[in-house]
Design a protein around this nucleic acid. Structure first.
Lengths: 233, 233
DNA sequence: CCAATAGTGTCTCTTAGACAGTATACG
DNA sequence: CGTATACTGTCTAAGAGACACTATTGG
């Protein structure tokens, strides 16, 4: 970055926003949080939640704040990471906006309440969301977020972000199945996931789903990378 | 993104820049393009090249323009992709700056010439660059860029971006060795890389390095993902 | 008992790494 | 000839997918 004699007045200002791809699992179906826009442009269209970065706030902090505001949950559990930035000159007709998109993965959360600027907010099944026209370039952002999530399940312990602090192997498998959109062999999955050193910590307790043998409850270990990975192919 | 009644005057303006991690191979050693800052802040410190995004220019276009300007080469061959964005409120003491970092991989390029705003510009061995204090948060950006490059060599045909349009298997291997920082078995590498369907297109010609059997010259095929991958472990 | 889910064992196929061996150049 | 590099073959170990089998619950 060079910044020689930068004259702020010589450039029109940029607005910087954060947009969120918030994914969760509801009834074994992958959902994304969308808001219905209450103002132009794109009034009435569905959009990813987001908002302006405040003057004294870092990008990650802005994303955390928006996540909390839009879900209505303080200290949202799960995972939050930067996805990419989108800054086509004409992506917003009003002014030059650069949006820094974030990907959030969370366990099942309560129904969202619409914010001041949104007509509605709702958890929408991802397959459904991808068939709607979304505001701005949000269809692209959503695609990028989904692809990131799918890829990272292979080599990171991110699937656990969709679960509570304690979970069973079957819980984890349902996450993989929902995100990847295909069934996995429960037996091979069990062997693979329990075979990753450091991934799962046995709590010593079990949980019964009503029918069948109760499953061991695990907590997430402290690994950051899965060796060997859980592959998609 | 919500943008209710946005009053541009109610927020101080953000500046948006692109910063570049430009990697190349020079004599089998991985180098990064750095500039010596000619103005405060960080006058005299080394920094990643970059500059302001212009009002009517997209982020990718700004990165391409800066890459061309800073290397002194029109239509730089190789690969350019967005890396991440960095926007801590105090990363630049003069004003609020959000930097969108890009990763560029290029074949060996001529010595750069300092721009108007930089005292010097030079290709610096990566190991050396990582030991220097870099301006702003550029040490972090450089690390992130290197890690991205290392990871993407595993499953993408990106190594060819470091080579010319035609290259030998040994050329490719030297890229992997330089980026990963470790020696690879030439025989196993050869079998692996020629075994990826669609990756290499035999030109029918060979190139002799002076000693030893001449190597087959290949062009890059049209695959985007390596199946199976070239793993690091 | 049966049905359902949890978890283990076993087989086959593919791939990774080690490394012997062959091919073709230069001096 | 030797040496250096390109390329191929072969062995072994480990992981992936298919799927039989055992374990433990509720009804």
């Amino acid at each position: 970055m060079t910044l020689p004699g930068y004259d702020a007045a010589s450039y029109p200002p940029f607005a910087v926003t954060v947009d969120l791809v918030v994914l969760t699992l509801r009834g074994d179906v992958l959902h994304v949080l969308l808001v219905e826009r209450g103002a132009d442009p794109w009034r009435g269209a569905w959009a990813l939640p987001g908002g302006f970065v405040r003057p004294d706030e870092g990008l990650d902090a802005a994303a955390e704040r928006e996540l909390s505001e839009e879900t209505g949950v303080r200290d949202v559990p799960g995972h939050l990471e930067q996805l990419a930035s989108y800054g086509d000159p004409d992506r917003d007709p009003r002014m030059r906006v650069v949006s820094v998109a974030y990907l959030a993965l969370a366990p099942d959360l309560p129904e969202p309440h619409a914010g001041s600027d949104a007509a509605r907010a709702a958890w929408v099944p991802v397959a459904h969301a991808q068939r709607r026209p979304l505001a701005f370039d949000h269809a692209r952002v959503l695609s990028d977020g989904l692809e990131r999530a799918r890829a990272k399940l292979e080599y990171s312990p991110l699937a656990a972000a969709f679960c509570g602090p304690e979970f069973t192997v079957a819980d984890l498998r349902r996450v993989y199945e929902a995100v990847w959109g295909r069934a996995l062999d429960p037996r091979n999955f069990h062997r693979k996931v329990t075979g990753v050193p450091g991934l799962l910590v046995d709590t010593g307790r079990t949980r019964s789903e009503g029918r069948g043998r109760p499953a061991t409850l695990y907590r997430l270990g402290d690994v950051t990378t899965l060796h060997p990975p859980i592959t998609r192919d």
